[in-house]
Design a protein around this nucleic acid. Structure first.
Lengths: 341, 341
DNA sequence: CGGCATGATGTTATCGCGAACAAAGCTGCG
DNA sequence: CGCAGCTTTGTTCGCGATAACATCATGCCG
């Protein structure tokens, strides 16, 4: 910690300060190769004294090794993806890999843009949400020649490998459970989902099973933006006024479901006797509501962890073979709002 | 998009494919300098055809310009920091700056580690949560010679500049509001906060005002981990059993506050008549509860935006001077749980 | 028609580090 | 004493791009 210098420090500065070659300094700082204890100590002392921070840009260029893993997700605005990130972080924690995150806002063009941007840093791997990408994005992923894990969803073909759940199946199972519990007049509420392919797939699986059983969704509503809890409340009210005969409400996520639940309880409506409810995601945040909302865990942290593990395995020396498709199986949590027969 | 090649593409490949020098290709791809329209078109065609992705590592080394901004935050597990990130993203969206995020889990040693790690990529700026850092971290920030914005908190001295709110004042104001409303028997619930300096400061400000008015916190409880909503519920129950005379509960965040609120409503307790409640953060998520919890907005997105704007201004050419301390003033949202006289 | 500004392209020298190879010190043993 | 065989340290070159400067064509003017 000496005087301010304008010129940033380089290996050369450390090497001069400690009286050895740059190469030796480099070796010491990377714990690579044989260096005697005395010089090691001298070098470390000098580096610390100067406050030297290695330049990974130069290092990466010289060694063509980069410890960055690109993580591309659609949003940070609900807890879903932060939880996935937490899972990823947990695994990379003990490795030298470093996730770098970019957000696409569910827009394919933006996905393409940030993917290009990230690949230009030559990361060693990519974790990207979803299986639906533009042709250009897919081409870039393929051409990058690095491990790619597509996460969240396994209903489709992966570029390389994938970790997630089957949202179609999740929708189907929930439909089955609802029908089995005896509900027949079903309403659906969710986000506008032209680009949320996973919500769409759940919805498709859901209606598929209903159709097979001669049941149709009797009312539906979509929202975007705003506080999900409040939206759930409003939409539920509106829908019930419009369609008073409904006996079940299926929500595309737990937050709006919780809003609906709170509204119904306020109104003194018997849940799940008169109306049953279910959401999706299993957000832990919501444990603690007056009644537990029926839901289905999306295995978010687990997905993050598994994806990170695949990347790590594929990059280890020698590279380990890994599964190319991991489908986790979420189970229904019936909670208190989906009565079982 | 031709055959798979093992060797990654370089400028040279594009230059050969288009029959011009590497330099010209570089100019085209960066929109820099004069290039004739015909060669520009040829080069772009070749680049696209090959699927060339520039190597920013090499570019950064050569130009010593890096478009990365290091963002260092303690956690992703509640909505606070994701919202800050959203604010940051909004601003950087229209610039060429790219945030890269790292998480410290509220651990100073880890902060030091990730800071070192990030600085080794020679980012052009740093946004880091909090004003409390190890000496080493502070030294690194200082020596990096780049704009540094410390966010969330303005009770203290910044290395360079800061954007946030005064948590001490937030605590004080809430205490004043509570006293003014006539409550005198106050309980506190929060996270264990040895390392959450902001929660600590709020608490200090809070007790300071109480003390000045001859009031003491009559009961307190701390938690860590688990679902905040459920914890709020449990803790509130426990505390009220232990201290039935309390007439106000101050929670260190909205989630546990909401848990407490739901519990009290369940019990048929009159809120805010018999017991008043307040939280902290103004999480939008919670709009939609049966009663609106009194809270105080922490200006999270705004903080992110302002911080990003400072960085952007400082890096513009020519650099703009910016304020070195921006203190946002959160206002109390009384909601339905803090009755006003 | 020469001269010179202007536009379009090419050349050369880095940037800071690490890989690969080269050289120098040290040890022990015949 | 000399040399093999190690450990420790140093040298050279190149990673893939950009800055700065050099060069070559073109056109316009007096």
């Amino acid at each position: 910690m000496t005087l301010e210098q304008k010129r940033p420090l380089t290996l050369r500065d450390v090497s001069e300060a400690s009286g050895v070659s740059e190469m030796t300094v480099s070796r010491v700082l990377r714990n690579r190769g044989d260096v005697s204890d005395t010089t090691r100590a001298r070098v470390l002392a000098a580096a610390k004294e100067l406050g030297y921070v290695p330049n990974k840009i130069a290092g990466a260029l010289a060694s063509s090794r980069v410890n960055l893993i690109a993580v591309i997700i659609p949003s940070l605005s609900n807890m879903v993806f932060p939880e996935v990130l937490t899972g990823i972080n947990q695994v990379f924690e003990d490795t030298e890999l470093q996730p770098i995150v970019a957000v696409t806002d569910y827009m394919p063009e933006k996905e393409e843009k940030v993917l290009f941007e990230m690949l230009s840093w030559r990361p060693s791997g990519v974790i990207i949400a979803g299986l639906e990408h533009s042709d250009a994005s897919r081409a870039m992923l393929q051409a990058a020649g690095i491990p790619v894990v597509e996460i969240m969803d396994t209903d489709g073909r992966a570029v390389d490998s994938m970790v997630g759940i089957s949202h179609r199946r999740a929708g189907r199972e929930m439909a089955q459970a609802i029908l089995k519990a005896g509900y027949r007049h079903i309403g659906f509420m969710g986000t506008k989902m032209p680009l949320d392919h996973r919500a769409r797939k759940r919805f498709e699986g859901f209606t598929e099973i209903l159709a097979k059983n001669g049941v149709e969704i009797e009312d539906r509503a979509f929202y975007s933006g705003g506080s999900a809890l409040a939206k759930g409340r409003e939409m539920t009210q509106t829908m019930l006024e419009r369609s008073p005969d409904l006996d079940f409400l299926y929500y595309s996520n737990d937050m709006i479901g919780a809003g609906g639940l709170l509204y119904l309880l306020d109104q003194g409506i018997d849940v799940p006797g008169q109306i049953g409810l279910a959401g999706f995601n299993g957000v832990e945040l919501l444990q603690g509501l007056p009644r537990k909302l029926a839901t289905m865990d999306a295995c978010r942290q687990e997905i993050g962890r598994k994806a990170a593990e695949i990347i790590h395995a594929r990059l280890s020396e020698p590279p380990k073979e890994t599964e190319t498709a991991i489908t986790l199986t979420p189970t229904i949590a019936f909670g208190d709002t989906l009565k079982r027969r």
